[in-house]
């Protein structure tokens, strides 16, 4: 899963609901594994399959969108539970970017920590993108992380997106926060000497 992300061109899976919570992304009954792999097959499980395991009419079951590595959602994507299994499931199912109008805080961080880019776009860009995908499922989008731009390839419509410099560096070079923190031990020890008054 530790793969750098620089530039990506892909079709999109449009999932145009607001407030998609992490219980929908990966239902709690699938959280019992003790590893990080294999969650992708249960991504949006209860929207993809009925209780007997038969496919439901759901966008991820539509052949037109197969192979896309960009997921498009509405407002407040990933609200609810902090389960990182949601980000693992998204990554395991082959998505590298989620485009939404807004994200819930914990899930945004979980995506970043799994080298999936949570990309917040303006309502205007979102509307244009959704309309384009609705017209033609083979619509592609290009994400350029070094330039921090997202482009609708058919029209060339481009928007700048924000990401903090540290996390951008991590994504570009496939470095995680623990790699960083383990290098800071002297600072941590100094902090403890100076500050630790609270009970251990």
């Amino acid at each position: 899963m530790k793969q750098p992300l620089t530039r990506l061109q892909s079709t999109c899976v449009p999932l145009l609901l607001d407030n998609i919570d992490t219980d929908q992304i990966i239902p709690a009954r699938f959280l019992k594994a003790t590893g990080r792999e294999g969650f992708g097959e249960n991504l949006f499980r209860d929207w993809r399959y009925d209780s007997a395991g038969r496919p439901l009419p759901f966008v991820m079951n539509d052949a037109a969108y197969r192979g896309a590595s960009i997921l498009v959602a509405g407002e407040n994507f990933g609200c609810g539970s902090s389960r990182e299994h949601a980000a693992w499931a998204i990554a395991d199912a082959g998505f590298r970017v989620v485009i939404a109008k807004s994200f819930a805080d914990i899930h945004r961080q979980n995506e970043l920590n799994n080298f999936v880019l949570p990309l917040q776009v303006s309502p205007e860009f979102h509307a244009t993108l959704v309309e384009a995908i609705g017209r033609d499922a083979s619509t592609t989008v290009t994400i350029d992380l070094p330039q921090q731009t997202v482009t609708l390839d058919a029209t060339g419509l481009t928007e700048h997106f924000s990401i903090n410099g540290y996390k951008k560096y991590c994504l570009l070079h496939a470095l995680d926060d623990i790699d960083f923190l383990l290098e800071t031990q002297q600072k941590i020890l100094r902090y403890e000497t100076e500050h630790c008054t609270t009970a251990r």
């Binding site: 980000a87 979980n110 920590n113 540290y166 926060d177 623990i178 923190l181 800071t184 031990q185």
Partner: peptide
């Protein structure tokens, strides 16, 4: 609340990047 990668960060360093 935090994700599991962040739980690992705290176990490893008693710190979190936030």
């Amino acid at each position: 609340g935090i994700g599991t990668s962040e739980v690992e960060q705290v176990m490893a360093s008693q710190c979190i990047l936030q």
